[in-house]
C-alpha cells in the first residue's frame, strides 16, 4: 500500500550499483544501504539538500562582493554580471543569497540538534523511568507544546539587543523539542518492557548505560528521522523570525532578505528577483528534508517497502 514513485523508470542511476539477483543482504547495514540506494525519494531529496549545502559553502567564493556592499546599478534584473539581480540599493542579491543559505543551514543544524538532544533526554528519561518523573516531565512537555513557539521566540528576541545566528538557533532549539520528546517517550515505553532491557537491568547496568546502550540503538533510525524533521522545522522558524525583523543583527539570512524586500517595497516596484530566491530555497530545502524522511521511513520500515 505504499506510495513510491515508479522506481525503475526514475532511477537509471542505480545501474552502477551491482544488483544481487535475490535481495539477500547479509548484515542489517548493507540491507539498509541496499534499499537506500534504490529509494528515489531519498535520492532526490538528498541531492536537493546537498546542492544547496554545496552552494552555501562554495557560493561565497564565487562572488567578489560584500553582503551589504553597494556594487551595481540599483534595482536591475538578473544579468551576467549580477546573477540574481540587485536590490533597490544596488546590493548583489546572489551574494546575499549564498550567505543567507549558510546561515539557514547553521540554524537548522544547531537548532535542530539542540531540540533533538533535549527531546531525546526528556523522552528517554520519561519513558524509561515512568512514575512521578514521567508525570513531571509530561506536564512540562505539554506546557511547552501548547505554548505557541513563535510568539515566545518573538518576545525573547525582541528584548535581545544583539542577536547572533547561534543565539537564534539556541532559542529555537529550546522551544521546538516537545513533540519529539513525546514521540520518543512512547517508543521508549515499548522498548523498556522488552526482555533484553530487563536482563540489562537485572545484571545491574546503570540507567544511563541502558538508555544509551540498549534502548537508543534500537530506535536509531527513528531518532535520525526525528532530527531531520527538527532540522527542517528550525529553518522555517528562523525564516519566520527573521522576516519579522527579529533575526540576527549581524550578517545575512534568507528570512532577512525577504524582510528587506518587503521593507523597501520590492513588491510595489516588481523586483521579484529579490524575494523569490530566498523563499524558494527554503521551500525546496525543507520540502526535500520532509521528502527524504518519507524515503528513510521506507528504508528502515520493511512493511512500507514495495519491492
Amino acid at each position: 500500500m505504499s506510495d513510491t514513485l515508479p522506481r525503475d523508470t526514475t532511477l537509471p542511476a542505480a545501474e552502477g550499483v551491482p544488483a544481487p539477483a535475490a535481495p539477500a543482504p547479509r548484515s542489517r547495514r548493507s540491507e539498509f544501504l541496499y534499499f537506500a540506494l534504490r529509494n528515489p525519494k531519498l535520492w532526490i531529496g538528498g541531492l536537493v539538500v546537498l546542492f544547496f549545502a554545496v552552494t552555501a559553502v562554495v557560493g561565497p567564493r564565487l562572488t567578489d562582493y560584500g553582503v551589504q556592499e553597494y556594487v551595481g546599478p540599483p534595482a536591475s534584473p538578473p544579468s551576467a554580471e549580477h546573477w540574481f539581480g540587485t536590490t533597490t540599493f544596488g546590493q548583489d542579491v546572489f551574494t546575499q543569497f549564498v550567505h543567507g543559505l549558510g546561515a539557514s543551514f547553521i540554524v537548522g543544524l544547531l537548532g535542530g540538534g539542540i531540540a533533538a538532544i533535549v527531546g531525546m533526554t526528556v523522552g528517554f528519561v520519561a519513558g524509561y523511568r515512568g512514575g512521578i518523573v514521567d508525570e513531571v516531565l509530561n506536564v512540562m512537555t505539554n506546557i511547552v507544546l501548547v505554548l505557541p513557539t513563535l510568539a515566545v521566540l518573538i518576545i525573547i528576541a525582541a528584548y535581545l539587543e544583539v542577536r547572533g545566528v547561534v543565539t537564534e538557533a539556541v532559542f529555537i532549539g529550546l522551544t521546538s523539542w516537545p513533540w519529539a520528546a513525546r514521540a520518543i517517550r512512547a517508543q521508549t515505553f515499548s522498548l523498556a518492557a522488552r526482555d533484553f532491557v530487563d536482563l540489562a537491568r537485572l545484571t545491574g547496568v546503570p540507567t544511563r548505560k541502558i538508555i544509551l546502550g540498549e534502548i537508543a540503538p534500537n530506535m536509531s533510525s527513528y531518532l535520525f528521522m526525528t532530527f531531520i524533521l527538527l532540522f527542517g522545522g528550525a529553518i522555517l522558524a528562523a525564516a519566520t523570525l527573521d522576516f519579522i525583523g527579529l533575526g540576527p543583527t549581524d550578517g545575512m539570512s534568507l528570512g532577512l532578505m525577504m524582510n528587506n524586500a518587503v521593507l523597501w517595497s520590492a513588491l510595489q516596484l516588481g523586483l521579484w528577483w529579490w524575494f523569490v530566491p530566498p523563499g524558494l530555497a527554503i521551500a525546496l530545502i525543507v520540502g526535500s528534508l520532509y521528502f527524504m524522511n518519507v524515503g528513510l521511513d521506507e528504508v528502515f520500515n520493511p512493511r512500507l517497502r514495495t519491492t
Binding site: 519566520t240 525577504m258 513588491l267 524558494l280 527554503i282 521551500a283
Partner: peptide, 9 residues
Amino acid sequence: ATPYMWLAL
C-alpha cells in the same frame, strides 16, 4: 515546507 510569507509575496 513553503514559508507563508514567501507564498504571500
